[in-house]
Write a protein that binds this DNA or RNA. Structure first.
Lengths: 190, 190
DNA sequence: ATGATATTTAAATGATTATTCTAAAACAAT
DNA sequence: ATTGTTTTAGAATAATCATTTAAATATCAT
């Protein structure tokens, strides 16, 4: 039988994920990944095939352990539209040293010029879109726009907020904006 | 006296700008820039100092000849809030072969992790923010949110739309969303 | 036309890139 | 303990990167 793996798969993926979130796919070298994962290049290639393979694994890890968990924590079905507000506000809480960033946003921008987008970008956007649509559909009234249309707006707003955070835009201004938007939304649906 | 410059400064900046819009700063090599500008590497370094120098010049060119002209065309002061709607819809018209992209959005995302942002990112966001604030302030009523808050929302929406275009999101869906948003906005202010 | 000066070109440089290879070390079952 | 297999570690590779250098070329004022 073979030697057992020494490293902690979860820690490796988390380290790689953080690097990719901060600096994008092209901005992270194998050497960087060695530093952030603790693995040597040989082990990375042995375990993940190539840089893109590790990236895909890290992106899946992001969807499962960052995005999904964030939704579960802030905006579960029972929390309704108020949960969506909490989800949006949670985006503003970032580490002091630069923006960690959202892989969906960042990779859509980095690859969207001509390179084919990783499937995880679509998966991520669909997870968000479905969450928004579901929460809006649950409280729909005849005064409001269709849930799909409202969800598209929230999706754009969500991505835009992440861009503005990345650009260093004032967080209090963003929080006021989010609250005004959800105040208005809740006024319409009640 | 010296030899005169052979190349067309405007064409050079346009070529470099398009490359940077599509593939970001890190995604464009000097070789790419040679192909897209027609200049040889030596001339690029002679004229712009280094890659970052050409990038700065191309970004300034973008603000002046793409962003400002787009605002002038679609959303001059006289056009009011209806002009803003036209500005947003204009974002959806892109070339068939991949997304050209907005330098402000793309560079904010690419550099926002830890690298310092070029000043042009702030300039661009401020140009947009001021335009939105001004148009909203001109029609403000007591029913609406403060112009600064409404402008922050439009700014986030604007950036988010650009991300979603980059991600290949359905353009008709985005257009419906934009129209619903401005229908609601115009309903409030009249 | 000539001299002074800039621009252009192409080759050279050194750093960094992703990836592969090789040998050493670690483990599990026998 | 020995065997078989896998993970490691580090060196080696070949490509590409931004940048510099030096020579050739082109232009303008005289």
């Amino acid at each position: 039988m073979a030697r057992t793996r020494e490293y902690d798969q979860n820690a490796v993926l988390t380290g790689a994920m953080e690097a990719f979130r901060r600096r994008g796919f092209g901005g992270v070298s194998i050497k960087d990944l060695e530093a952030e994962t603790g693995l040597k290049a040989g082990s990375i290639y042995n375990s993940f095939g190539d840089k893109a393979g590790l990236f895909r694994a890290a992106f899946d890890h992001y969807l499962e352990h960052v995005l999904q968990e964030r939704i579960t924590e802030h905006a579960p079905e029972a929390a309704g539209v108020a949960g969506l507000r909490s989800l949006f506000v949670s985006l503003l809480h970032e580490p002091a040293d630069g923006s960690l960033g959202c892989l969906i946003t960042n990779i859509a921008v980095e690859f969207g010029g001509d390179a084919p987008l990783p499937n995880a970008v679509f998966s991520g956007l669909n997870i968000l879109s479905r969450t928004f649509t579901d929460r809006l559909a649950a409280v729909q009234t005849h005064h409001a726009v269709l849930p799909q249309v409202g969800a598209a707006k929230l999706l754009a707003l969500y991505q835009g907020i992440l861009v503005l955070i990345r650009a260093g835009w004032s967080k209090p201004a963003l929080e006021n904006m989010i609250n005004a938007e959800f105040d208005q939304l809740e006024r319409i649906i009640t």
